[in-house]
């Protein structure tokens, strides 16, 4: 199997014009000068300096880049920023309100639901989306519906404990 030469020929890009893209990020209309090939994830991290949203794989395989877009949890690495013109995006930086941590943020600290902290913003944003969807009834459902967020430190049981705590608070209200 030696001597295989890929015949891959890239499309020669000539057009490097940027365009203004306005996205409502954490309640603030934010205009960024972007080329179309910028993912929403890179737009947030590199162009808007909102590095709370993490890049763990850049291919939709880890969940670290989860943000909330128009109310739904999505992977910001698998969408283009230009496609989100006019959308409402909530990132981890926008989860706390008026300096008050979101109940999930508090529960994550209390239950030690992270170690290195790198998957944490994605886990929290995903959990917010998951609770809003309202489809999880049991702990098993929560585990399944949170399975799009990997944690390599192995904080899994603490993460699910933290989410269950908040889920149970919600259902008691």
């Amino acid at each position: 199997m030696l001597n295989y030469q890929s015949t891959y020929s890239p499309v020669l890009t000539k057009d490097f014009d940027t365009r203004p893209v306005t996205i409502n990020i954490n309640g603030k209309p934010t205009t960024l000068q972007l080329m179309p090939w910028v993912s929403l994830l890179d737009a947030l991290r590199e162009y808007a300096d909102l590095t709370g949203t993490k890049k763990g794989c850049d291919h939709g395989q880890c969940g670290a880049c989860t943000v909330i877009c128009d109310g739904d949890r999505i992977l910001s690495c698998l969408t283009l920023a230009v496609m989100k013109e006019g959308s409402e995006i909530t990132t981890i930086e926008g989860v706390a309100e008026n300096g008050q941590l979101h109940p999930l943020q508090k529960a994550f600290i209390e239950y030690d639901a992270f170690q290195c902290g790198y998957c944490t913003p994605g886990q929290i944003c995903s959990a917010i989306g998951m609770l809003k969807e309202g489809k999880a009834k049991t702990r098993a459902d929560v585990k399944e519906l949170m399975s799009g967020n990997l944690c390599r430190c192995g904080a899994n049981t603490n993460i699910i404990d933290a989410i269950m705590e908040v889920k149970n608070q919600d259902s008691h209200e």
Partner: peptide, 13 residues
């Protein structure tokens, strides 16, 4: 609880 917890859950880390 981890002292740096706040930084990690808010994306400030």
């Amino acid at each position: 609880s981890r002292l740096e917890g706040h930084m990690k859950v808010t994306g400030a880390a």
